[in-house]
Write a protein that binds this DNA or RNA. Structure first.
Lengths: 221, 221
DNA sequence: TATTTTTTTTAGATTTGTCTAAATTTAATT
DNA sequence: AATTAAATTTAGACAAATCTAAAAAAAATA
């Protein structure tokens, strides 16, 4: 029941990728993990041997039930640590990812459950991503849409940023767009799909299409 | 400036051993790390090559300044995590060692300094061991003596337990002997050097010589 | 469908930390 | 001082995770 750091990272990456496409390819995963396809193939064999993966040569792969369960526990650890680092240790939401990335691998179930209690069972991390509970279940989530799909002049609340690169987070931090921030789309420019926003009912801010796509807001019709 | 988990554990173990004897031997260290002398020799070469160690073949070894500095930072991390686990997550003092043992290797300086602040700069961990500050300095410590050296009928306070095996901690927990507990030696039996104690001015408790040696109390004459 | 390109896998090497067994050095004992 | 015993080091091997280069399979294109 104990997996190496490397294996845990593979499981987590596969989990995230298959949530987008259903099935994952070797090259895709290699890119996500900043490693080589040959290394991925090696590891896939091991994960399959440990019955965490559905995989046939040349056919792509995905997690089975057990693999998904393990991945969710790691994600739980990651997000609870992020919450702790921001809420208790006063780190910025854009600087906690790497730290959580390490801590998640050295946190036994008992420890993370106590941390969860200490933090009072938060439902989402500082980036707005949902935190699985002790059994690996997500809370009922609000329906999310990305900013380009939000109708003009409807005010919505930022729920998450995805993907969360250091660079995007830095940019949003600077423009005062955080989880929970109120946003209204004032104008869409078809020339480059950039958007002009009203942030927190006050400042006017312009963002590119790329940035807009990464901002997820609530969609309550 | 980044060392492997294994190297960090070697440095920490050498630090503790040389505090008792000045110089450390291969067999001694192998026993402390539950590994083989041959493995120790291999690692010593690497640590020497990295200039963390003073070492000549067949002559024993000890940390140099740099090695000591690194060891102290790891010990700081370990003890702060222990404090956190007991004070904030409500673990027992006898169950936090293993967890801290893992976390200590994945905690960057910036993180541990913030944790220190969050915990309000504790001076010692749940076992009474002093926590080095951000620069690796210990606070002025009270002079400690082990229980067999405490004069009869003088009340003293438990400052630390050393060494801290799971087994001793469990035994002491059971007998209600904790850091801070008041102890008076009522009787010394020369037959087996066992002691009869009064604990917290109330209960009478008998402990063996082995246990007594591991209990450190304050020595203010 | 045949050929080219892309993707994936295999083969073999490398690094880190470990091991066992054998050799060497130092310490202890006769 | 010679011999035995203990401690330490060397030599060679192994497992995990990675890599490069080459081979094989699948997909795309002509």
């Amino acid at each position: 029941m104990k997996y190496s750091i490397s294996k845990e990272n593979y499981l987590k990456a596969i989990f995230h990728l298959q949530n987008e496409n259903g099935v994952v390819t070797t090259n895709e995963l290699a890119a996500a993990l900043l490693t080589k396809p040959a290394s991925v193939t090696d590891m896939l064999k091991k994960l399959k041997a440990q019955r965490l993966l559905i995989y046939e040569k040349y056919k792509g792969f995905k997690l089975n039930n057990e693999g998904r369960k393990v991945a969710l526990q790691i994600i739980r650890k990651h997000r609870l640590w992020e919450y702790f680092l921001v809420e208790k240790l006063q780190f910025g939401w854009d600087e906690v990812h790497e730290m959580a990335e390490e801590l998640e691998h050295f946190t036994h179930k008992k420890l993370i459950d106590r941390l969860d209690t200490f933090l009072n069972y938060p439902k989402s991390d500082p980036h707005g991503d949902p935190i699985p509970d002790s059994n690996g279940k997500f809370d009922q989530q609000q329906k999310q849409i990305s900013l380009p799909h939000l109708s003009l002049h409807r005010t919505a609340k930022v729920l998450a940023i995805s993907p969360q690169t250091k660079e995007i987070l830095e940019l949003l931090q600077h423009k005062n767009i955080l989880i929970g921030t109120k946003i209204e789309v004032k104008k869409k420019f078809s020339f480059d799909d950039s958007l002009e926003l009203k942030v927190n009912n006050r400042t006017a801010v312009t963002i590119s299409a790329a940035v807009a796509k990464s901002i997820l807001v609530n969609d309550d019709q």
